[in-house]
Design a protein around this nucleic acid. Sequence first.
DNA 1: CTAAAATCAGTAATCATTACTGATTTGGGG
DNA 2: CCCCAAATCAGTAATGATTACTGATTTTAG
Lengths: 133, 133
Amino acid sequence: MINVAIKYSRQRQEIKNFLMTRKDHPTADVVYMNVRQQFPNISLGTVYRNLTLLADMGEITRLRLGDGVDHFDADTSPHYHFICSKCGQVIDLKMNNIDSIVDIAGMDFNGEIQGHITYFYGICGDCRETVTQ
Amino acid sequence: MINVAIKYSRQRQEIKNFLMTRKDHPTADVVYMNVRQQFPNISLGTVYRNLTLLADMGEITRLRLGDGVDHFDADTSPHYHFICSKCGQVIDLKMNNIDSIVDIAGMDFNGEIQGHITYFYGICGDCRETVTQ
DNA sequence: CTAAAATCAGTAATCATTACTGATTTGGGG
DNA sequence: CCCCAAATCAGTAATGATTACTGATTTTAG
């Protein structure tokens, strides 16, 4: 029997639990800081390894928003993100899917387009207030 | 007089010239390899510094496609890119702009959306042929 | 032609992430 | 309930892209 056992360690549980409590798409380092409150001896390598594992299993999503650090999201439903150019915070956008652009993109292309990555940037509400005042 | 002189060194000239001859969005390392044929003593740091300078001046575009390396494009006109999940090559897509999605994204958002980044992924024509055979 | 400022080559430092290693934990079978 | 092979861990070293520093060289306005 081919048994690719996945042993769900307490550390991995806690990492996923923590991610599920957050809507701000933390980085590996933020996850590490917080999970350490439950597991003081957890290693940053363990955090990275489990984030990668969870992402590969499809239980979380890895976000690459071009700011040099990976962000992670426990909400795996398809949705879009906004990243503030000033403070760097990542916010969910409430908008419908635009998968149709994949068809548009594929019209004059000889390869196979499987999907698209889209994110938006600008100044978030908090930072705009600060600037105005 | 406030004179923020920009001295256009031969190295910077050559880096931009090289980029203009290429349509495949090279990485800093590829630029380095090639420019070294004209300037054998050029330093990788010089390549990085000038690529960043040129991008800041708007003469080239820096592409962050989530593959862990920055790509550079001398074509600064707005257009979209496809990155092959198999071989990693980056290809220009011939499609119209979809800036209208910025309006859609901003409809239920209290910040200021200034733009969007979109790229497509899948299997390029070359790799698809290889698989089929 | 001169000199201040920009730029360079070379190298060291940074930073996020991944890989390695020997010890510990997990969970299915007995 | 216990055993043990496999998975996972903590700790640490390595990697790889990019940036920062430094003293020498190049550029260009005057």
